[in-house]
Design a protein around this nucleic acid. Structure first.
Lengths: 149, 149
DNA sequence: TATATTGATTCGTGTTACCAACTACAGGAG
DNA sequence: CTCCTGTAGTTGGTAACACGAATCAATATA
């Protein structure tokens, strides 16, 4: 039975997810723009916050081509946010990691994003927030996984 | 008292929102890429699906500069997806609207996005979906508003 | 050892986005 | 009515971002 409101429901969810995502991305982009960082650079910084990865692994995490990574890391390195070093295990590979300055920027940004999103998150009660976290976790397959912001 | 788990909770929510948003954007971007449309072009199409707007209004909706809009509409027009026409009320202004082809593409894309997101939304029960829609609505300020996908 | 495969870079191209400058029209102030 | 100011859109210049193809070095595999 039932089966009726289901389609509508799915459609509503898609709209809600899309709209929310655009809103969140706009907030993130704005937070990054404050310190002249693109969304992508923000992501790289966040990913490297507690890790050291080789170029290709980084590209995989971001879903980008290796060639794109070269450019991204070039620019970030030029700004002193991250650094390259040859890998120990494989002499073809190159590790990337944050400099102290890069980590500082990553931390700052994280705070900035928090306060930029506060106007949104404050609309929810503590209970609602908890529920939302759970639902979104379930949606994404509950992989607690690494930071993406 | 309390005040304790609250901060964590807010942090978790920010992570959940950011990660989910990146995931959703990736899905949208991929769906667009299938037919050679960028995320931005997708948004323009979605916004114009049931409206006819002048350039500046479109720019406002997207949070972009007017000059950026010129380029976007140029390319979309060249592909036969939308069309320009001088406004009736103001001879400076220019209206933009979808062609039939553009509307078809917009509809197709909407379906494609739906099925691309299905693997995610299917993880939730109907009740959970309903709850999520409500929570996201609340988060965004419950502005039912126009499509943004 | 010869041949693939993988890791990263470089090069060329196209899109997106900004800003500043410009043209054309609109709406007052005088 | 004329001048001035503001608004609508475009153009041109610049930079980031992203892709694919080609290349080079190092590693695996036959």
């Amino acid at each position: 039975m039932i089966t009726r409101g289901d389609a509508e429901n799915a459609d509503d969810l898609i709209d809600a997810l899309s709209q929310t995502s655009f809103t969140v991305m706009a907030v993130l982009a704005r937070a990054g723009a404050e310190i002249d960082l693109s969304l992508t650079q923000l992501r790289v910084l966040a990913i490297l916050r507690d890790r050291r990865l080789r170029m290709s692994a980084l590209a995989d995490h971001l879903g980008l081509e290796r060639s794109t990574m070269s450019g991204l890391v070039d620019r970030a390195e030029k700004r002193g946010l991250m650094q390259r070093a040859p890998s120990e295990e494989d002499r073809r590979a190159i590790d990337v990691f944050l400099t102290d300055a890069g980590r500082a920027v990553a931390d700052d940004t994280r705070l900035a994003v928090g306060s930029s999103l506060a106007p949104l998150t404050d609309r929810l009660s503590a209970d609602a927030r908890r529920a939302l976290v759970l639902l979104l976790g379930e949606l994404r397959g509950a992989t607690p996984g690494p930071r993406q912001t």
